[in-house]
Design a protein around this nucleic acid. Structure first.
Lengths: 233, 233
DNA sequence: CGTCGACTTGAGTTAACTCAAATCATGTGG
DNA sequence: CCACATGATTTGAGTTAACTCAAGTCGACG
């Protein structure tokens, strides 16, 4: 069946016996969310978690004044909203579709039953949560110990490694969203991109495409070994 | 045996059949770490995780310039350093004893074997990692969306709820460490405590004891609904 | 009682923010 | 296919929260 095939492509379910995929197919609920629609809200009670099938989802926090901090952008194959399933708490952040997105929803009770019967599934989930924790420590480090140019440099290098296109990368999100992901605002991001270009570190094409000219310097920036000079004039 | 009794008091092992506690007792390694000694380092390969038995451990990140961001302070019964066990990566941060500390060390391979055989243990671990993720989202929110007075207010309220002593609380760490936990520096923390005292929100005894005078205002500060006025003179 | 780290206070600097405004990009309805 | 509406982006000007550097005080412990 189509659903089972899709389930089998989800890393969380790697190594699962076919019978368990069938069990999963029985409990899963497919949903389509339009661009800009909310999937769940910070503080809302959570009765299950999601896996992105197609499209993209941003998970974010909001301040009372409306400033947004993106915690993570999830793409196909990635699960999100698991925290309340296992911690028995509410969702710790908001989730919204960045584009038309298809997700699978797994109700808590049935999923926990499956985990009880299947140690591989438990270990896969433990691995995913652990990796998420690892990423979060990096995010905290960025926000607390690095300046915005360093965070941007780290992000560009990350994108460059994810996309193979040697030294030529494409921002897959708007600069406004990137600013929110980096814990800053669009104006600041824009100015720093300008500075990096002027320093000959990167070259910005139109349309969110960026070339890395001086990777060494970018790496030093990301490590906090050097700072971007103040070419203010 | 003594070890089994100590294991039974660890929340991670709640609900485990006695036979599994015996299994755990067989694989566990006891260690004593002196104040200031490092337990593991950021980036080091991890072959197991720890549980605090007595004492306290800080887990933290360091910037190249030596600034420190504390991610978490762990006390008796709390596990730490689990990420590499399940994600197969290195430790994502540094760990150091704040005082003389006894820990149990659980080697990765043996522990994963136990998890395979015991769904309750797996679910307990999933719950703990999920709660940790929840806390980290709060930390990111604090660092990115709140000013230092708001973070401090939130921390004081948290301490007040943890300690029962109505409106009278004791910092269990030095103010320098608190500064690092809040993502700031001692000078800034000191100034903000002074401001809060001058505003009549709190009263600082000598010796790290603090009284909450105006809880309402403290709560609004923590929520970011108001800001601390600039009584600069 | 002296030493060392913790804490406080002052003075000056700065990275990043807010506010404002202009420009560009995209897409929709006519 | 064009004109406008909406949102993204850039640039300028001014402000500020928090930082750095410096110096002095306090407090606990050997």
């Amino acid at each position: 069946m189509e659903t089972i095939k899709q389930l089998s492509h989800i890393p969380l379910f790697d190594g699962l016996a076919p019978e368990y995929l069938q069990d999963l197919a029985r409990i899963v609920i497919e949903q389509v969310i339009n661009r800009g629609e909310q999937i769940f809200a910070d503080g809302e009670e959570g009765k299950g978690f999601y896996v992105v099938i197609t499209g993209r989802v941003k998970v974010f926090k909001l301040s009372p004044e409306g400033k947004e901090q993106i915690l993570h952008i999830f793409g196909p194959g990635e699960p999100f909203g698991e925290v309340p399933v296992f911690a028995g708490t509410s969702y710790p952040a908001n989730a919204e579709a960045l584009e038309k997105t298809k997700v699978f929803y797994f109700p808590r009770k049935a999923f926990i039953e499956l985990i009880r019967q299947n140690p591989t599934l438990a270990l896969n989930m433990l691995a995913i949560l652990s990796k998420r924790l690892h990423r979060f420590t990096a995010l905290v480090e960025d926000l607390s110990l690095k300046e915005v140019p360093g965070r941007l440099a780290a992000y560009l290098l990350y994108l460059s490694s994810k996309q193979k296109n040697n030294n030529e990368l494409t921002l897959e999100i708007t600069k406004t969203q990137l600013a929110s992901l980096l814990g800053t605002i669009p104006e600041t991001l824009s100015r720093i991109l300008t500075r990096m270009s002027r320093e000959g570190i990167i070259k910005t094409d139109i349309l969110g495409r960026i070339q890395i000219i001086d990777r060494k310097t970018l790496e030093k920036l990301a490590q906090g070994e050097i700072r971007l000079s103040n070419s203010n004039l």
